[in-house]
Amino acid sequence: MNLLPRAASVIALSVSFFASAGAMAQDAQPAHGPVKNIVLVHGAWVDGSGWKPVYDILTKDGYHVSLVQEPLTSLEDDVAAARRVIDLQDGPAILVGHSYGGSVITEAGVDPKIVGLVYVAAHAPNVGEDEGSLGKKTPSYTSKQAGAVEKTADGYTYLNPAVFPKDFAADLPLSQAQFESHGQILTAAKVFSTPLTAAAWTTKPSWGVVAASDKIINPDLERWYYERAHSHTTVIRGASHSVYESHPQQVAAVIEDAAKHAQQ
């Protein structure tokens, strides 16, 4: 008389187990739809606040956006800061880097949660390379100016406030560029000469934005990076190194394109 209830219980438990196992297996599979998590990484001498125009567009369009605030004390410290934010993401993410932030995302982007990379007027070295050496081969306008980049006694660099507006942010309002010039995050000189130990762009899809009037990084170097990485490349005419602030709609469009297509 007790066999039927027991049998029903066994069947119910079996169905529950296989349903749970199926759900777990489904969760373990990589998603193939649009990515909703975006992680933004700033470059040298600035902080994450410059991303606000892009952040506002992406969040309005339904993306979950996180910003990394690097200490700019060493490449290792900055990559670690990016990894902490990546760890907080609840699923696949697009990792975006501006300028020196490109070196940071190139290393941090090997994280399995990262499914695509976006380089915005950024460096993209390979394993064993450093952006300083690559920059010397294709020098920028700024690097040719004596006294443009200053260095403190303890080895931290900053851009001379007198040249910051025209070199870093020529297409921003002058008052904004001047404010940013006096709010720089001094950056350890060694970050520019530390060889990379990983290069995520060799195994993951990437997108690149060339700031065609960039004076901090030679636009030809940006093009070379993106061509080597087989990146989907967008050239923004007349854009300064602050392209993410001056042309946020175009930069956000590239990031959204990456989010929509990185897993296809």
Rank of each mutant, 00 (worst) to 15 (best):
G48M: 04
P71N: 14
P71L: 12
S49W: 10
V68A: 01
L67S: 11
V68N: 00
H64T: 15
H64R: 13
G50M: 01
G43V: 05
V39T: 07
S49G: 14
P53L: 10
D56N: 13
D56Y: 09
W51D: 02
Y63H: 13
W51S: 04
V54Y: 03
W45C: 10
V65C: 04
V68F: 00
D56M: 08
L67A: 08
L40H: 05
H64I: 14
D47E: 13
D47W: 08
L40A: 00
G62L: 05
S66Q: 14
I38D: 02
W45V: 12
H42Y: 03
L58T: 09
Q69T: 14
V54E: 05
V68K: 00
L72Y: 04
D61E: 14
W45N: 10
S49K: 13
A44P: 08
D47F: 07
H42P: 10
V65A: 04
G43F: 00
I38R: 08
G48W: 05
Y63F: 14
L58P: 01
G43N: 08
E70A: 14
V54T: 15
H42N: 06
D47Y: 08
L72W: 05
G50P: 01
V41N: 01
D47P: 09
L72K: 07
V65N: 03
D47N: 15
H64G: 09
Q69P: 01
K52V: 08
V39R: 02
V65R: 07
V65H: 09
S66F: 08
K60R: 15
G50N: 05
L67E: 13
L58H: 05
L67H: 08
D56P: 03
I38A: 06
G50H: 01
L67N: 11
Q69N: 15
V65S: 03
S49E: 12
K52D: 09
D61R: 12
G48C: 04
V54H: 08
K60E: 10
V41C: 02
Y63W: 07
V54C: 10
L40E: 00
D61P: 06
D56A: 14
T59P: 04
L72Q: 11
Q69M: 11
L40M: 11
Y55P: 00
G48K: 11
E70K: 10
V68I: 02
V39M: 04
G62E: 04
E70L: 12
D61I: 09
V39L: 06
H64E: 13
H64F: 08
V41E: 01
K52Y: 06
G62N: 11
K52L: 10
S66C: 07
S49T: 15
V54M: 06
P71A: 14
G50K: 01
L40V: 06
I57L: 03
K60I: 02
V65F: 03
D61T: 11
V54F: 03
T59Q: 11
E70R: 13
A44W: 01
I57H: 01
D47K: 12
K60D: 09
L40T: 01
V54L: 07
L40S: 01
V41Y: 01
Y55E: 12
G43C: 08
G43W: 00
V41P: 00
V41D: 00
V41R: 00
H42E: 04
S49Y: 10
P71Q: 13
H42T: 05
G62T: 07
D47Q: 13
D47T: 15
